[in-house]
Amino acid sequence: METKQNSIGRLRRNARWELGFTLMLLVGSTIGFFYVKSLETRTMLIWLILISLVSLGSYHRHMLSGIRGLSEVGATIHAHVAQQVAGIRQILEASYRSSVWVVFSTFGIVLFFALYKALTQYSGRLLLIQLVGVGLGCVIAVVVSRFTRRVARQMLQDLYGRHLDRLEATLRELNHSE
């Protein structure tokens, strides 16, 4: 059966999927941590556990509290619209920060291990080549991070921007009569 969902319903559904994925990542990484022996893989899993915990503690908390605030339809129109504006802003901020944070932490993990490997396994000219590689990796990380920020901002603007603009106009109109 096809289902009909409003914008808040879709936001809530997406947030639940993301939450489920993060929980799976957390459980999988924790189980994996006790099974693997390699120090490198274990450190990587600790990174993943840390990212999942930060996501659960910050991103999902902000996201869900923002969505919860959007659902209160019994409030006055002024309060409801103001709550919608604040909630959507909170969601946008959380989404934007999480996009940037995921890219940043992914590059961080990769570059950290590349540097660790270079310092422990190579010496002389080979070490220098490895360090240049890590340096190039850092430059790429900065470029990709900037690109991600731009894309994330544009995507969020396309998804929620118009809706937010309209709600802000409604709120201004209600305030204008004050």
Partner: peptide, 25 residues
């Protein structure tokens, strides 16, 4: 009063976000 609030809140805040689909969830 409460009914007007709910109805108007839905109409004002979600109107242009709606997409037409056959059934309701």
């Amino acid at each position: 009063t409460w009914l007007y609030r709910v109805a108007l809140n839905v109409a004002i805040s979600d109107l242009r976000q709606r997409r037409r689909r056959p059934t309701s969830a």
